[in-house]
Design a protein around this nucleic acid. Sequence first.
RNA 1: CGGGGUGUGGCGCAGUUGAUAGCGCGCCCGGUUUGGGACCGGGAGGUCGAAGGUUUGAGUCCUUUCACCCCGACCA
Length: 414
Amino acid sequence: MRLSRLFTRTTKNVPADETARNAQLLIQAGYIHKEMAGVYAYMPLGLKVLENIKGIVREEMNNIGGQEVLMTTLQPRDIWEKTDRWDEKKVDNWFKTKLANGTELGVGLTHEEPIVDASGNYVNSYKDLPYYVYQIGNKFRNELRAKSGLLRGREFLMKDMYSLARSQEEHEQMYEKAIEAYHRVYDRLGVGDRTYRTYADGGIFTTRFSDEFQTLSDVGEDKIFVDEAKQVAINEEIMTDENLAKLGLNRDDLVEKRGVEVGNTFHLESKYTDALDVYYTNEQGERRSIIMGCYGIGVSRLMGVVAELFSDDKGLVWPEEIAPAKVYLVRIGGDEAVRHADELYEELKSKGVEVLYDDRDARPGEKFADSELMGIPYRVTVSDRLIESEKYEFTTRKTGETSELTRSDLFAKL
RNA sequence: CGGGGUGUGGCGCAGUUGAUAGCGCGCCCGGUUUGGGACCGGGAGGUCGAAGGUUUGAGUCCUUUCACCCCGACCA
C-alpha cells in the first residue's frame, strides 16, 4: 500500500475524548474511527490487524476440530424465552428491536440459544456427536457504560465457540482441549506470559467455576489474585475461603493484580440443550442430554489489549504476526531515490512481503515519526545517501536498532 | 443509573466584566528547503452541540435537551 493513497491519515494531536491509551494511539495512527461511545469502526490498517487476529483464532479453533459458522445478529424471541433469558431482569444488556409488524427481536449478544436451536436439526444420534462449532462476529451489548476504548464497547468482535458432548467425560476433554487452544492463541499474540487462566463465577446456570483468561494490565477492570507457581489465578469476585479450599489455593501464595478478561469459558451442562429440547439417542436407543461448553474470546478487545500493552512513547508496537504490514518503506531523496524505492516496493510485494510504502513528498522526520506511530515491525529506508553503496537502512521498531544492509541481506532478513 | 467534568473550523485549544469569533496543527496555491514532524508569502474553512428564553445586543446569562470523558454501580 502506498501511503499517499491510504484512506486514513495520522494526526499529531491526541484525541480529546479518549483517555484510554489504546484508543488514543489507534485513532491517532488511523487504525480505528470512533462512531460513538463504545462503538468503533475499523479503517484499512485497523481491519488488517483485526483480520490477522481473527486468523490466529480461526487457525487454533480449526486445529482442535472447530467448525466455523456465522450465526445471525437478529434473534427470534421464542428461543430465548425457552431458556428464560429474554426477560430483562435476567439479561439486562439486551438490545432489542421490532419488525414492522411489531414482532419483537433481540440483537445478538451471545449465541447459545441459536446454536442449540440449529443443532436440533442435525443432532439426533450419538453418532452425530461430539462437535465444536464457532463463529467470529459482532456482538451487541447495551452496557451501561462503555469505556477504555476497545476494551469495553457496545458493539465488538467476538469469537464464540460451543461444544456439544455426549457425556460429562467427553465434555471435560473437550473443555480442556479448548483451553489449550486458548493458550496457544494468547501465546501467538505475544500476551501468553501475562495471561492467566483465572477461576471465576460460573454464571447463572451452573454452580461450577468458569475459567477466565486474564491478561495482566493496569487498565484491567478485574481484580485477580495470581498464584505464580501454579500459573493460575482467581477472580476477586469468588475469592472466599471456601472457594480457595475447593481450588486448592492458599491465600499466602496469591498476589493481587489487575487483569483484562480476554477470554472466558463456561460449563453449560445441559441447561440450554434441555431447555430447547435438543437431545440425542444413545447406543441403547435411550434419550440422553447433551453436555455443552461455551468459549469466548474478545477479538477486538484483544486488539485493544495488544495496542495498550505493546506501545511506547512513540506509538504502537505490533507483534509481527498481527501487524498490518511487515515493512514500512521510507524513501528519502530525489528522482533516483524514487526510482530505487519504487523498485524495491514492487519487489517486496512480489515476494509476498506486506509493505507500507511512504511515497509521500514529506520530510524524513515526518515519515519516521509515522512509521513509529503506526508500529510497523521493520522500517527500510531508501536514501539518496545510501544509493551509491547499494545499501538500505534497516530499523527494528521494537528495539530501535538500526543497521545498514545490502540488498541480499535485506531480503534474507525479511 | 448516581456523582464529577467537557462540547467553539478536519484535529487540539483560547475567548477577560455580554458588543455577531481567534491561535496551533492539518489543508490549498507560490517559492525556498530536504536524515527526526522545515521556513516565508498568499488562501480556503466555523455561527460557537441542539432547542427555547433574557437582552438594543449572547460563544459568554437562564431553562430544557443531546453527546462525549472519568469515578461508581453494571458487565451470562
